[in-house]
Design a protein around this nucleic acid. Structure first.
Lengths: 227, 227
DNA sequence: TCATTCGCTTAACAATTTGATAATACAAAT
DNA sequence: ATTTGTATTATCAAATTGTTAAGCGAATGA
C-alpha cells in the first residue's frame, strides 16, 4: 500500500508510436505520470511494474489484443480497481459492448482530440479515484493529515496547527534539509512575514511535544527530520 | 457495508420523445428504474423529486440547456455524487470539454446504439456504488439517513435538517477533521454563503442534543467526530 | 386567515487557544 | 574573546471558538 501518491500514474498501450507520443505528451502536460507500452504483453508487464492508476488500451495490438489484456488484468486482484479505458479505431457496436463488458470503464473511438481525451481522463479520476488517506508513517511515528493527529507508539500527540504543519512538512521528506525560507513559504505562506525566531520557537514546541530526537538543526541552513 | 442494494434509478432528459422512449425502453429492459424529462427545468424538478442515481442529459433542450442543468445540480450537495452523462448530437470538441468540465462523468455523442449506451451505463454503475443511504452505526449511535433519525441506546434524538446533515457528515468519517470550508460545501452547498458562527451554533446544538462528547474541535482547522 | 412553532442565521460578547516577539541564555566557530 | 546562529522562556496580541439571545421566514395548525 503506497503512502503518498498525489500524482496519478497512467499507462498507455498502443502499437502506433505517433499516437503514444501525442497522448503521452498531453497527459504529461496535465501533470500525470505516464509510461507506455507497444503491445499487449508489454502492457501487462508494465502494469505490474508501474502499478498505474489508469490504463489506456488500444484494442488491435500485436501479441495479445486489448480486450485480452483487460480480461487478464481484471482477473488479478491487484488490478481490480485500476481504471481501464479502451482507445481504438474499432467503432463497431459488438466490439464496444464486448470491451465494456470485459471490465473496462470507458471506450473511446479514434480519432479523438487530445483535449477531449484529457477531459475524459480528468473526469474519470475526479469520480473514481479514492483520495489519499494522507497518513504518513515513519518508523513508529504516524502522522495523519486527515485526522490531524500524530501518534507515536500508540500514544496520540496533540499539536497546534502550525506545529502540525511544520512537522508534516519536515516528515514528508525525511532527511531533506528544509531551508528556513522553504519552511516559511510552505507553512506560513508567502504573504505573511514573520521573524526568524518564530520558526525556532515552533520547532522547539514540536520537539518538546514529541519528546523524540527527530528534528535536527543544520546550522546556518535549516532543519531536517530524521527518526 | 452497504445496507440497501436497491434498483438503480435513472433520469433521462431530452426534448425528442422518440429518443426518450428508446432509451427508456432499453434501460428498463436492463432492470433500471427510469423517469424522463422533456426539458432542462423539468429535469431539475424531477431530479429533486426522484433522486436518481444517474442522469442522462441532452445538451440542446428548450429552457435551460444540459450544461446549465449540470452546473446547477452540481452546486447542490444532494447531487454531488449523482452520476451525470451528456448524450448529445453536439460533437464539437469545445462543447465536449466544457461538458466534462462542468462536472459530468461522461459525454456520449448521438447517434449511439442502445446496446452501447446500456453497456456504458452498466460500466458506470459497476464502478460506482452509491453511498449508503441507509443506517450508519458508530458504537451505540445509530444514524438513519433515510428517516433523518438519530438513535442512541434505544432513544430517538430529533435533529433539525442542518443539524442532522452536519452530524451525518462528520460521523461518516469518524476521526477525520472536516475543515470549515468542507462543512460549508457539503452541508450548505457552494451557492449559499453563511457566516462563520453558523457552524458553531449548529455544532453546539448537536452536541447539546446528543449530550455525548463526540464532536471535537480542532482549533484553526475544523471539527471531527469521535465516539 | 391568523397565530404559533420551528429551524436557520446572525450579532454580540465571553472564553480560550494560538502564534509572534523580545529578551536572554547558550553553543560553536573563527 | 567575539561573532554568529540557535534554544528557551515568558509575555502579550491576535485569531478562533463557545455561548446566549434575538430576528426572521417558512411551515404548521387551529
Amino acid at each position: 500500500m503506497s503512502v503518498t501518491n498525489t500524482v496519478k500514474k497512467i499507462l498507455i498501450a498502443d502499437d502506433e508510436p505517433d499516437i503514444l507520443e501525442i497522448i503521452q505528451y498531453n497527459l504529461q502536460s496535465e501533470g500525470y505520470e505516464v509510461t507506455t507500452a507497444k503491445n499487449g504483453n508489454e502492457a501487462i508487464d508494465m502494469a505490474k511494474r508501474f502499478n498505474p492508476d489508469l490504463i489506456i488500451l488500444d484494442i488491435m495490438m500485436p501479441g495479445r489484443n486489448g480486450i485480452e489484456v483487460c480480461n487478464l488484468l481484471r482477473m488479478q486482484p491487484a488490478f481490480k480497481d485500476t481504471l481501464i479505458i479502451f482507445l481504438t479505431a474499432l467503432s463497431d457496436e459488438g466490439t464496444e459492448v464486448k470491451g465494456l463488458e470485459s471490465g473496462a470503464d470507458d471506450y473511446i473511438t479514434k480519432p479523438v482530440s487530445p483535449k477531449v481525451l484529457v477531459s475524459k481522463v480528468n473526469a474519470l479520476f475526479r469520480r473514481f479515484i479514492k483520495e489519499d488517506t494522507g497518513i504518513l508513517q515513519i518508523g513508529d511515528l504516524k502522522i495523519d493529515r486527515e485526522k490531524y493527529i500524530v501518534n507515536y507508539r500508540g500514544t496520540d500527540i496533540i499539536l497546534a496547527r502550525k506545529e502540525f504543519e511544520l512537522l508534516a512538512l519536515l516528515a514528508g521528506k525525511p532527511g531533506k534539509v528544509f531551508l528556513r525560507n522553504e519552511i516559511l513559504n510552505q507553512v506560513w505562506g508567502t504573504e505573511v512575514i514573520v521573524g526568524d525566531r518564530t520558526i525556532d520557537v515552533h520547532i522547539r514546541k514540536v520537539r518538546q511535544k514529541l519528546n523524540l530526537d527527530c528534528i535536527t538543526t543544520v546550522k546556518g541552513v535549516g532543519y531536517k527530520f530524521d527518526l
